[in-house]
Each structure stands twice: as C-alpha cells, then as structure tokens.
Amino acid sequence: MIRVQGLTKHYGPVVALEGVSFEIGRGEVVGFLGPNGAGKTTTMKILTGYLHPDRGGAEVAGHSVLREPLSVKRQIGYLPESTPLYAEMRVDHYLDFAGAVRGIAAAGRKGALDRVVGACALEGVMKKQVGELSRGYRQRVGLAQALLHDPPILILDEPTSGLDPNQIVEIRGLIARLGREKTILLSTHILPEVRETCRRVLIIHRGRIVADGTPDSLAAGQRDETTLYVTVRGAGAAGVLSGVPGVRRVEPLGTEDGRERLRLRVASDAPVEEAVFDAAVARGWKVLEMRRETATLEDVFRRLTTES
C-alpha cells in the first residue's frame, strides 16, 4: 500500500531524511519509532503530500505522491502531530466541513458522521467548540476527521502524545480496532505501545531506517547470545552445567544456604532450559529459579539510536 524509495530531505543544512526506503503491505499496522528529530514527521508529511522530498519518491495505493497528490490524499486519513484543529469551530460543524471538503455528498455525510462519532465516542461533545475540549477529546476529533471518508490508509503522527493513561488506553484500543481492516503507519515515543498495537516496527535514526521487523524479532535478533539465570540446590552445579549443550559460559554469582546462583551465557536459539533441568534432575538437585533475560525493544531502541 505504501512504497517509499530513497527519500531524502534537507531543511537548509539540516539533514532530515537520507535515503529512506520501506514498504508497507495492505493491512499492516506499522509503528514508526525514533528519537525526536529523527525524521518520522518529515516522512509522514511527505507521504501526505504536505512536503516535497529533495530526492526519492513514494507511492501510496499505487499513486505517486509527487505526480498524483490528489489521488494519494483521497486514500489517506491523516492525523498531524499535535492535532491542529479550528479552535473556534463547533465539533459537528468542523466534522461536517471536513466531510464536505473531502467530497462526501451532503446525503452521505450524515451517515459518515454518525459512524465516526460512534467509533470515537464523541456523542457528548458535538455541540461544543473544539477549543473547549480536553486534550483527549481533541485527539479523538482529529481521529474522527481522519476516518470520515473511510480511507484504506491511516497515517497518525504521535496519536497518544499528551494524553493521560486512561485516554492512551482508549485511543490505543481504537487504533487496534481500526488496524483490523486498515493499513496504519503510526509514530510514537512510547515503546510498550508499539508492542501492543503494531505487528511491525520501523526504527529511524538521523534520517535513516536502522531497523525493520516485528517487535519480538527485533528484540531477539539483537545478539545470538542471551543470559539465563539459574538457582539450584546442589553441589558443583557450575561445573556440570558448563557441559550442557548450548551453554557457552557459566558465571557463579554466589552460594547461600546451599543454593547456588549462576549466570549462564547461552545460545539464544538453543532450548537450554530443558537440558539444564534434565541435568539437575539426573543429579537429584532442585531447580529453584530459571529465568531467561531477553533484550527488550527498549534495549534495541536505545542501542540503535544512541550510537553515532
């Protein structure tokens, strides 16, 4: 649905994007991560036709962003960063305007409005001025506006920023429901959010894509070695366990009341836990704790976006 090729964009001497390429298939929900200023918003602004790239191009639903901007804009529902809205307008007037400007005929507008108002739970605030609304409601009005024409593609720039935890859960739920039928590209700083709502993650840093995959594969794919913490009751465990297949190194952490605590460096693709358990049982030891530490998305993010 979205194909981005070699996007490059400079703001004066500042490099915003440096050859960004990726593809997003129909129905994918993709989280776009990166530190502030990494190029997330710029990429989204180019996809929605607000900015021109210096080099490279993008296709949305088969239409070129540069040559057929109107066709592209019809396919996209866009929630810009910080949700700009006409503060002096009433919510119902604003949504009606957004529908009309998108070319929804007056007859169909009522139905479209009812649909998005229901989906975004805006029933109670329709007669209020947009400027009077809380941050959460404004965000929902922005989302409702993006959904009015039932676009196949949603581009959401930090849809949960500035919301309180309850509101975040609500918006996240809404996005998850929308993700069942739409292609979504959403940017965020909140990493747990990505794990919950996105099946795929793109990490951008200094204008380049530095990682692309499912949250789990990114976390797991960090190194081929992970750490296994083991506590057993039994003598000489360190020596025995270093012979278990898949274990590369054993580091004793100390003994306490006959319980031996060990840190095992193991191959991340080997079923080491079972072998350790069998070895312990064969010698009559008791396994008190066994815990594998996997790299989290946070680790991946920090590692990829802090090194230069």
Binding site: T48, L70, P80, P84, L85
Partner: peptide, 14 residues
C-alpha cells in the same frame, strides 16, 4: 500559527 494549514493542504484539494 495554529498548524491548521497542514490539515488544509493535506485535504484532497488544489
């Protein structure tokens, strides 16, 4: 100033 220009220019209008 309000940023609504971005909305306006990403609507399907010339």
């Amino acid at each position: 100033r309000a940023g609504t220009e971005e909305l306006l220019l990403t609507f399907p209008v010339r």
